[in-house]
């Protein structure tokens, strides 16, 4: 079946209209980028995931699908748990098919003598440096300038919980108001990994759990209802009278 942008697509559907966008530019051809859920076979483009087909300017096509299992992809920020220390690398569980490696030199200010103090069981926020289907994924906790930015070890008095990958994508969308509304009446610190793990720390245990519940409830809440959702949670926490 042929589908176009905005439709609900199934694996095996083929895309139409892709060629016509190529001609839109006067002389130069526009490059079409196929995102997740799409693949090219010969001169046809097939869908390989079920979801909603979306397009973003200039010509980026992708399928927005529901997923729970993380498949590593380069450049994404993830929340992981250190499971093993061996030699000069740490093994980190990020919820993918394989454990990721993290070099002890990949921290801000780390040298051969000055090792970072990481224990088994620590939660870290790191960036995927290498992610290919044939190789072990590799993480780093610094950017290309050698600075930490927001990456690194997350403090142990926070809480980590898992959710679906599509929820994380929804929350990290700049148009999603949840974090802003939630932050109006309570202070919290949060790290959302693209691997479906969220680390959160608020002022008290109650507030942490309440904020986590608000995030999980947001999966089936549209943006306009989020105000109501947060108000209800603040009421139960007695933050507002």
């Amino acid at each position: 079946m042929e589908v176009s942008v905005g439709d609900v697509v199934m694996p095996g559907d083929s895309l139409k209209d892709i060629k016509s966008t190529k001609k839109e530019g006067k002389n130069e051809r526009e490059n079409v980028i196929l995102g997740p859920g799409l693949r090219r076979e010969g001169d046809k483009v097939y869908v390989c995931k079920a979801g909603i087909l979306k397009r973003r300017d200039p010509a980026v096509y992708y399928v927005d699908s529901y997923q729970k299992r993380y498949i590593p992809s380069r450049g994404e920020n993830v929340v992981g748990i250190v499971t093993q220390k061996s030699g000069d690398i740490y093994k980190v569980d990020v919820g993918a098919s394989e454990q990721a490696t993290l070099s002890y030199l990949a921290f801000e200010g780390a040298t051969k003598k000055n090792r970072p103090d990481l224990q088994v069981g620590d939660v870290i926020y790191a960036k995927m440096l290498v992610a290919s289907k044939d190789m072990e994924p590799e993480l780093v906790c610094v950017d290309s300038q050698g600075k930490e930015n927001e990456l690194g070890v997350l403090s142990s008095d926070g809480m980590v919980f898992t959710c679906s990958l599509s929820l994380v994508r929804k929350l990290l969308n700049p148009e999603c108001p949840l974090f802003r509304i939630l932050g109006r009446n309570q202070a919290y610190e949060l790290a959302a990994g693209m691997n479906g793990r969220i680390w959160i720390k608020a002022r008290s245990v109650q507030e942490t759990i309440a904020a986590a519940n608000a995030i999980l409830a947001a999966e089936y809440t549209v943006a306009s209802e989020m105000q109501k959702l947060c108000a209800r949670i603040e009421k139960t926490l007695l933050l507002v009278t």
Partner: peptide, 11 residues
Amino acid sequence: LINSGLSMKFT
């Protein structure tokens, strides 16, 4: 399989 989000050639 559709629900799991695994890449498929067809259903």
